[in-house]
Every structure is written in C-alpha cells, then in structure tokens.
C-alpha cells in the first residue's frame, strides 16, 4: 500500500514536474465542478434576469424590448411593490419569535426537569416540510376547528371569532404566527448553543453574589450572546422582506396575503410574464443588497468586524506559510 502510493507519487511528480504542475492540476480539477454549478445556477440566472427585465416575454416565443417599462410597472402596479408592505407583519413576527426563543433558551440552558423533551417538542416544527405545514394550518385555522375550539374553551363565543385566513384584518397575523411556530425552535437551539459556550464559572460567581434570574440574564447571558442575537435580528429583516412560505403554502396569496415573492412567483410561472417578474426580482435583490450593506456597517460598528475577517485572516496566514515553505524548499534544493 505504502509502496504503491509512493510509486504513484514519484511517477506523478515526473509527469507534472515537481509539485507545481500538480498543484495547478488539483486546484483546477477540484474547483471545476463547484464553480461551473455556481455559475450556471446562480450567476447566469442573475445575469439573464437582468437582461430579461428589459423585455416583454414569455418562457417560449418572441420577446420584445420594452426598456424600463417593466421597472415602471413594478412601482406603479397595485400588486407589485405595494406587496412589500406585508413584510412588516413578518418583521413583527420575527421580533416576537426572537424574544420567545431567547426566553426559552435561557430557561432551558439550566437544569430543568424534562428539558430535552421541551427542547425537542419546540424544535421539531422546523423539521416539518412546508407543504405539510400548509395543510396543518389550513386545518388548524378552519372555522370551528382547532383554534376556534381552543378559544371557545377559554370562554370566547365562537360566533365572535374571525375567519383567520379570510378576514383581511387578521389573516396576515395568522400567517406570520405560523412562521413563528415553525422557526422559533431553531432560534432557540442556536441561542442555547451560544449560552452553553459561556464560561460556567461566571454563573457560579453570580450565584454566590446572590444575583437573581433577571440579573443573571441581563448582565451575563445577554452581553455574551449579544452578537448572535443582533445577527439574527438583522437576518430577520431580510427574511421578512423575502417572506414566501406561509402565504405560498397556506393561502396561496389569496385575500390580500400575497407577499412580494408570492406575487412574483405567480407572475413568473402562472402568468408567464417573465420580463416583469425579472424586474421584480432585480428590484428586490437591490433592496436586499442595500440591507446587507447596512447590516455589515452596523455589525462592524457594534462588534469591530470580528465575524467577517475570519477567512481573510486564515488566508493571510496560509499565504505566509506557503511563502515560508517555498523558501525552505529553495534553500533545501540549493543545499
């Protein structure tokens, strides 16, 4: 085995002329496929989208150059840009979700009877397929079904309850709530991970000092997981802007629940107005990129850019090591 690989190595070295050629070969072969896939399924669509946004076209057939008309439509049609206002429902939901997740994470990070069960029960919804979630909540919100029954136990008159998915004054809250239901546990698990990585001695010291639960949370837990909380808070903003799943699987965007992406999906794949849908996608991507830049700035100000420079630092270190290696090799060759 050993001899075999040594034999191969030396013959390879002969073929590729001592390492350098082999280095190029390994870089090219290992990167070819990932880069090809990245180009074909991410950047090419991106470029095409930009191109299509200036045409009136379907997937098949003739296309017609319309200049900026699609962009004008995005901002003037009643169903496009205005759909973005629905993101505020999901943003509110996301904030509620983070607060609840933070609470349960704090509770479950310390010894609790049945802790594993509670953690598992609250996390499991995030593993359920979106379509199944759709059916589960259509059922849950149907007149006289689950939610209505529970509320009638609590003393609400059934007749006074709204139609959770039809009534336009409440249905977006209903949908945002399903998103909280599904993803709260995921946030909770992340926060538990962060809290667990805090030095245990800090809690013990606090206990000895007689700190109560709130103080422990306020002065030890919160500061040490601040970065991950802020990161999740910021991510929830872009997440809300691109909210898609709850309306797509539960109401299919009917009764005023069509978020921007649901509308875009309908325009692209049902109405086949590819140009308009592309323009919508480009506009939203622009907004998302602006948000991300703002996030980076905020994070940099708050945390001194500790998160992002990780890979850059590693790269620098690597370059230095390689330079050193080459120098050593040269010296060895000379000697």
């Amino acid at each position: 085995m050993m001899e075999d690989s040594m034999g191969k190595a030396s013959s390879l070295k002969k073929i590729f002329g001592m390492g350098k050629g082999q280095r190029i070969l390994v870089i090219v072969t290992f990167m070819f496929l990932p880069l090809l896939l990245l180009f074909v399924f991410t950047y090419l669509p991106f470029l095409k989208m930009f191109q299509f946004s200036f045409y009136d076209m379907k997937y098949i057939g003739k296309r017609e150059w319309v200049g900026l008309q699609n962009y004008i439509d995005v901002f003037t049609r009643d169903d496009c840009f205005k759909a973005l206002k629905l993101c505020f429902y999901y943003m509110a939901g996301a904030i509620v979700q983070l607060v609840i997740a933070l609470y349960f994470a704090t509770v479950l990070s310390f010894k609790v009877k049945g802790g594993a069960f509670f953690k598992g029960a609250m996390f499991f919804p995030s593993l359920i397929c979106g379509i199944a979630v759709g059916f589960i909540f259509k059922f849950f919100y149907t007149r006289g079904f689950v939610l209505d029954t529970v509320l009638s136990w609590l003393g609400f008159a059934k007749e006074s309850l709204p139609y959770w998915l039809k009534d336009t004054s409440i249905n977006n809250f209903s949908l945002a709530a399903t998103s909280v239901w599904k993803y709260m546990g995921q946030n909770m698990v992340l926060f538990i991970g962060a809290i667990m990585s805090v030095d245990k001695e800090l809690y013990e010291a606090a206990m000895i000092d007689g700190a109560n639960a709130w103080n422990k949370f306020r002065y030890i837990i919160l500061p040490s997981i601040k970065s991950i909380v802020v990161l999740n808070l910021i991510l929830s903003i872009t997440g809300s802007i691109s909210a898609f799943e709850p309306p797509y699987v539960i109401t299919n965007g009917t009764n005023g629940t069509g978020t921007y992406f649901v509308i875009m999906d309908r325009i692209a794949h049902q109405n086949q107005k590819v140009g308009l849908a592309s323009a919508m996608a480009i506009v939203l991507l622009g907004i998302l990129i602006l948000c991300t830049i703002a996030q980076k700035v905020i994070l940099n100000v708050m945390f001194n850019d500790k998160t992002e420079s990780y890979s850059r630092k590693a790269l620098k270190k690597m370059r230095k090591e390689e330079r050193l290696k080459r120098k050593e090799a040269r010296e060895a060759a000379r000697a």
Binding site: F41, F46, K48, M49, Y59, M264, V274, A277
Partner: peptide
C-alpha cells in the same frame, strides 16, 4: 434568495 432566481433558472 432561491425563489428570486428561479424565474430564470427555469429558462436555463
């Protein structure tokens, strides 16, 4: 977001 690019990924 994946949903956004599907408009043209479909064409590809």
């Amino acid at each position: 977001p994946g949903v956004a690019t599907q408009v043209t990924v479909y064409q590809i």
